[in-house]
Write a protein that binds this DNA or RNA. Structure first.
Length: 424
RNA sequence: GGAGAGAUGGCUGAGUGGCCGAAAGCGAUCGCCUGCUAAGCGAUUGUACGCCCCUUAAAGGUGUACCGCGGGUUCAAAUCCCGCUCUCUCCGCCA
């Protein structure tokens, strides 16, 4: 969420920024609520002040066995009035809170303006797209004919958008998870964490999934627990409601987790294959940074994601999302898109974002500056490193051979008992 | 699942209705002392929000709230009552 004080004082800037994002938000209503709240707060606090001092007098009178009944009666009325003010404050605060919770983040000045994904700008590309002497197949055809992906049985066991992996397919998924974790830990300086895969409502609110995106989540029946849509949620919330020491920053964490998404609103999209599943695996990088270095950290984080594809030898391009395509909580996002020959297109395989202090304010993650002891919000960042299922897709499609077999990228072989090729 | 105990500041820990935003100790910061270190002495040491001051911010002043969370009783709640959450111990069950 945005800083209410900042919002109050810079309303025109925020209005303009939200226009650029294609958001129409009733800021006048907010200003009215905010002014009314502060007036009411002032009245309530003045009464409390009176009650506090008179109550002290009453205590002293009683100690001297003097009569205090007049004061007690008067304070009874004051207390009733305080309760009334408190009630209207509660209502006002609820409305203000509901308002600020659905206002998106303010984009960084370097974010390109645009009206849709066609306005995202390509910032770089890497690698050579493979050329084939045959018509390259899509991953689901390859996976089914090699008997390593079983969509029909996934659908039988659970339903649409669930898949059974078998043999070398299952092994490749697991190998990728280990390979990615090892790379980020050994080469990029991250600490591995393994977190709960269900979280409570506070955690979902902290990272911005709640209250606005409830319909995208799976909720546990009868409990206030949700299945995580990304490890970003539990990992970022590790430090919720904490004040960190400046010398601990930046903190780099990397986590594997399955991700659960309802994919409401994407019916009919990517219905075949692994691209869009209700449950998929992901390795996620999360950073907690000082504000002054967070944009450098974003560049490094994105490079860390790209490094996975470079090690696997898969061509990619990196795009900077424009104002219209930016996620709710993000101030700036790079998507890394892997080349998928079977689909003859680039597909998103990682999304790396800087949230500035937007999540940190919601989740109350702060740090104490070592000079002066001032407490500030940290900046949080995260990025996929990478989406594992989509990486399997990229490998199958890029490394397919004329005979339908798949060459396994060299870096992955030690994680797959030395297997070099998947054959029918 | 059953029974019991507990939750106070960075940490330990006192506090059963007003003198408590909270003793004491530890830690930390600054200063003094000392050839250095240690010891010793003194001071400071939570967060949030409102208002004043101010061009803004900071600093400063002032008010309010916060003793796990949410309600209640009372002129007045860390303290009494109710509900919840979490932690610990014992029993049961269990990978």
């Amino acid at each position: 969420m945005l800083d209410i004080k900042y919002l109050r004082q810079n309303i025109e800037i925020v209005r303009k920024k939200m226009d650029e994002r294609g958001q129409s938000i009733d800021f006048d209503r907010f200003l009215g609520l905010d002014a009314k709240k502060r007036d009411t707060l002032q009245l309530a606090e003045n009464l409390r002040n009176e009650r506090n001092s008179v109550s002290k007098e009453i205590g002293e009178l009683k100690k001297k066995k003097a009569d205090a009944s007049a004061l007690i009666e008067k304070m009874g009325n004051v207390s009733t009035k305080i309760k009334e003010y408190d009630e209207s404050l509660r209502v006002l605060e609820e409305e203000i809170n509901a308002f600020v919770m659905i206002v998106p983040n303010i984009q960084h000045e370097s974010v390109p303006q645009g009206k849709g994904s066609e306005d995202n700008t390509v910032v770089r590309s890497w690698g050579k797209k493979p050329s084939f002497s045959f018509e390259p197949k899509q991953h689901f055809e390859l996976g089914e004919s090699l008997n390593i992906l079983d969509f029909a049985r996934g659908a039988k066991i659970t339903g649409a958008r669930f898949t059974v992996y078998r043999g070398a397919g299952a092994a490749m998924e697991r190998a990728l998870i280990s390979f990615m974790l090892d790379l980020h830990v050994e080469k990029h300086g991250y600490t591995e964490v393994l977190t709960p895969f269900m979280v409570n409502a506070e955690s979902m609110t902290g990272t911005g999934q709640l209250p606005k995106f409830k319909e995208d989540l799976f909720k546990i029946e009868g409990m206030e627990y949700y299945l995580i849509p990304t490890a970003e949620v539990p990992v970022t919330n590790i430090y919720r409601d904490e004040i960190l020491e400046e010398d601990k920053l930046p903190i780099y964490l990397v986590a594997y987790s399955p991700c659960f998404r309802s994919e409401a609103g994407s019916y009919g999209k990517d219905t075949r294959g692994l691209i869009r599943q209700h449950q998929f695996n992901k390795v996620e990088m999360v950073k907690f940074s000082k504000p002054e270095t967070s944009y450098d950290e974003l560049e490094k984080l994105t490079a860390n994601a790209e490094d996975v594809l470079e090690k696997l030898g898969i061509a990619y391009r990196t795009v900077c999302l424009c104002t219209a395509d930016l996620g709710f909580s993000s101030a700036k996002t790079y998507d890394v898109e892997a080349w998928m020959p079977g689909q003859n297109t680039y597909r998103e395989i990682s999304s790396c974002s800087n949230f500035d202090d937007f999540q940190a304010r919601r989740a109350s993650i702060r740090f104490r500056r070592s000079d002066g002891g001032k407490v500030d919000f940290v900046h949080t960042l995260n990025g996929s490193g990478l989406a594992v299922g989509r990486t399997v897709v990229a490998i199958l499609e890029n490394y397919q051979q004329a005979d339908g077999s798949i060459i396994i990228p060299e870096v992955l072989r030690p994680y797959m008992r030395g297997l070099e090729r998947i054959t029918p």
